[in-house]
Computed example of a mutant assay.
Amino acid sequence: MSHLRYDAEAVPVFEHARALLRETGDRDREGRMNRNLGHSLRSLRKYPEAISAYRLARTLFREAGLPAREGNVCRDLGKVFRQSGRVAEAAAAYREAIVLFTESGRERELDETKRLLHHLIEPTTSTPKDR
């Protein structure tokens, strides 16, 4: 699945797949499909819809007891919040991801998320006047 397309053509495919998965009760797969849908919507700059898909994925992963996957979605939410100019919400989402990655022992994801949070709070291109 690492070669999925995240574009306009993928949106109806992911929506159909998540509807089918909802019927099976497989929270993990339904969560992954919602995350994929979120990626497609984010790439199309449909931020409110992407946020909704990511939030649903997070809920499903939490219900399934999958903190590392939930952490991935929190990091995704941080990215879409940042892209839509919602910096405080981005920082909160990154912090939630850090907690989840710490709890699940996901060092690589933890380091990446800490870096994203650092760059959000301390942008390298800003000057003290810009902050």
Rank of each mutant, 00 (worst) to 15 (best):
E107A: 10
P67A: 02
L100M: 03
T113D: 04
K46N: 10
Q83I: 06
F14C: 07
E103M: 04
E63Q: 13
E9H: 06
I121W: 13
R35V: 02
C74L: 03
A91L: 12
E103Q: 11
H3E: 08
P123V: 03
L110Y: 00
H16I: 07
L41H: 00
A50N: 12
E112Y: 14
R62T: 06
E109P: 14
E122C: 09
P67Y: 09
L4K: 11
R115K: 14
A10F: 04
S43M: 13
R115T: 14
E63S: 07
R29F: 08
T102L: 10
L20W: 06
G38A: 02
K114E: 09
E103K: 15
G25A: 02
E63M: 02
S84V: 00
G105A: 01
L117E: 10
L77W: 10
N36L: 06
V80R: 04
D26F: 01
F81Q: 02
R29D: 07
L66Y: 08
S126I: 05
A91Q: 12
S2V: 02
F101H: 13
A68L: 10
E89W: 14
L110G: 02
A57S: 09
L41A: 05
V73I: 08
G65W: 07
S126P: 03
H39S: 08
R18E: 07
A64G: 01
V80F: 02
A17L: 12
R5V: 14
V80H: 03
E112Q: 15
E9G: 07
H3S: 12
A93W: 03
R106P: 00
I121H: 07
L56K: 13
P67E: 01
A91H: 11
E109I: 00
R95C: 01
R5G: 06
